[in-house]
Amino acid sequence: METKTRIILICSGKGGVGKTTLTANLGISLARQGVRTAVLDADFGLRNLDLLLGLENRIVYTAQEVLEESCRLDQALVKHKQEPNLSLLPAGNPRMLDWLKPDDMQRIVSMLTDKFDYVLIDCPAGVEDGFKNAVSASKEAIVVTNPEVSAVRDADRVIGLLNTHGIKPIQLVLNRVRPRMMASQEMLSIEDVTDILALPLLGIVLEDEQVIVSTNRGEPLTLTGSKSPAARCYSNIAKRMQGEEIPLIDPSKEGSGIRDKFRRLMQTKIF
């Protein structure tokens, strides 16, 4: 059982590319497929995975208390109400940054491996201590990047570091893709990105305003059963992680159907 648990680091290097959003949505999608999933916020300094999942007000204990042995692991785990297969292990308070060591991270994760099939670790931005802690406990990784030069550059750096830590396999998620800008070559194309990063592409996520709405509400898109483009992309990625073969979406064909056009028209604010 223990060896079957997949411990996946979700990282990017650059901030704001959508690591936490991806973690939250994948967590929900996986849980919905019936696998026991834990999401671990390794971004101790600036934690907000709990916000995205709408679990902020239910946190009593954190990983810090578990490590200090002042509470049990199942006391600290916050179960999601609608998706009981999903649990969040909140990070400690920001002061934890100072004393957390890679060993501590490994201890937390090894406690989780008995109880869960998937452990998703939301990695902090950057390549400093927080990143090193998170990497030390991971086995696989998903690198999130946006189709822009700076995000790709940082992702490349992170992939180099992941390689030196022996993380395998490393897969790529291309987030915030705007089909129109790609078609007009104002944005890096999918080939441009995969050409440099040379990683298998796990999925593409389309740019979607609904993501912002869902973040503010604390309800990940995949939870509400939304049919928005990004929600579809997220659940496709989760299915691919489970071994289902789902073809990648073709951005050039997105939004050209009559239904999509109608939906866009409805969303356009004329006044």
Binding site: R153, D154, D156, R157, I159, G160, N163, A198
Partner: peptide, 13 residues
């Protein structure tokens, strides 16, 4: 002597 390296050099390396 000639130095061999196999594998891609990524950003920062």
């Amino acid at each position: 002597p000639l130095t061999f390296h196999q594998g891609t050099l990524r950003s920062g390396e």
